[in-house]
């Protein structure tokens, strides 16, 4: 199973998201071809209702602790409730280009 698939499955199981995107951005970085090292996840779930910004991210970090300790060395995330997602017009911010620091 790819790292991307594993991240996807874990997030589905933990949050039952209304919307989920797991984007492999490794190609934007200075890593070997095929490395699954940089990811962005967008999770829109009712489960985040009443949970603060920091705690939402902590939950995702904890869920993906094994991946973060292993192949994944950058994980960018946005965690919203469905209401927040609609308020934002469903837009996903672009990740910045790599600057060589890994």
């Amino acid at each position: 199973m790819t790292v991307r698939q594993r991240i996807h499955d874990k997030l589905v199981e933990a949050f039952s998201p209304e919307r989920l995107e797991v984007i492999d951005e490794s190609h934007m970085h200075n890593v070997p071809e095929g490395a699954e090292s940089h990811f962005k996840v967008i999770v829109v779930a009712e489960a985040f209702e009443g949970v603060g910004r920091l705690d939402r991210q902590r939950r995702i970090n904890a869920l993906l602790a094994d991946e973060l300790a292993g192949p994944v060395h950058a994980l960018s995330m946005r965690a919203w409730t469905p209401a927040q997602w609609r308020e934002r017009g469903g837009e996903v911010p672009e990740s910045p280009p790599c600057m060589g620091g890994g």
């Binding site: 960018s76 990740s95 910045p96 280009p97 790599c98 600057m99 060589g100 620091g101 890994g102």
Partner: peptide, 8 residues
């Protein structure tokens, strides 16, 4: 900066 996320 030497990382895009730090830079931003």
């Amino acid at each position: 900066p030497s990382c895009g996320f730090s830079a931003r």
